[in-house]
Amino acid sequence: MFGVPAELLLALPEHKVPLDGGNRDSQNDVFALIRFGDKTCAATIEGKVNEPFGPTVGDWFSNPSQGKRERMRHLCSLLGLDEVPPSNIRYQLMHRTASALIEARRFKTDEAAMVVHSFSPQRMWFEDFAQFLHLLGLDAIPDTANVLTLKSGQRLRLGWASGNADFLAR
């Protein structure tokens, strides 16, 4: 995904990242610091088999409280979005990506990454991931990194990694 050999520096399971608005953190399956060449990346990894990405923005943001409005403003600001995303976008993809951006700032890394590590042979929920990337102006291709520079100047890498389904049989 990084184009050069990568070295895992640190991996933390079930890593929580505080988000503005509300009182629930974004709990990432894995947070990792990764070195590749002379660069360092703060990455959140969302593991999936057959479960969906949770509610859509339309469901999560219907009749929003003040806390949800604050959180949505914060997420949109981090992601460089000028308005609330379309209702079909999965909210979980937004806050997992925001987590990577927040932690990249915290650890002063060269970039942030959010990776979906899917073990679904049918690539269940890939279309949701593709819609999220399209919102950011990217085309999703499995097992290929997409890189963009956000309005903030922060570099963001997004990817869908296909896991070996043999590991599900163990």
Rank of each mutant, 00 (worst) to 15 (best):
3 G>H: 12
3 G>Q: 13
3 G>V: 12
5 P>W: 07
5 P>I: 09
8 L>R: 08
12 L>F: 04
14 E>S: 14
15 H>A: 15
16 K>Q: 14
19 L>H: 07
27 Q>G: 02
28 N>R: 02
34 I>T: 04
34 I>G: 02
38 D>V: 11
39 K>N: 11
41 C>V: 14
41 C>W: 05
41 C>K: 03
42 A>K: 03
45 I>G: 01
49 V>D: 03
50 N>W: 11
51 E>Q: 13
52 P>I: 06
53 F>T: 11
53 F>P: 07
54 G>K: 00
54 G>L: 00
56 T>C: 07
57 V>W: 01
58 G>R: 00
59 D>S: 13
71 R>E: 01
75 L>G: 03
79 L>P: 08
87 S>P: 05
87 S>F: 09
90 R>Y: 03
93 L>G: 04
94 M>P: 00
95 H>A: 00
96 R>P: 00
96 R>C: 04
100 A>W: 05
103 E>A: 02
105 R>F: 04
106 R>W: 07
109 T>G: 08
110 D>M: 10
113 A>N: 03
113 A>E: 02
113 A>H: 01
115 V>M: 12
119 F>K: 08
120 S>C: 10
121 P>T: 10
122 Q>K: 14
123 R>T: 11
123 R>W: 10
123 R>E: 11
129 F>H: 10
130 A>L: 09
130 A>H: 06
131 Q>N: 15
131 Q>Y: 13
134 H>A: 15
134 H>C: 11
136 L>I: 11
136 L>M: 11
140 A>G: 04
141 I>P: 01
142 P>C: 02
142 P>I: 12
143 D>V: 09
143 D>N: 15
144 T>W: 01
151 K>F: 01
155 R>V: 15
159 G>H: 07
162 S>M: 06
164 N>K: 09
165 A>D: 10
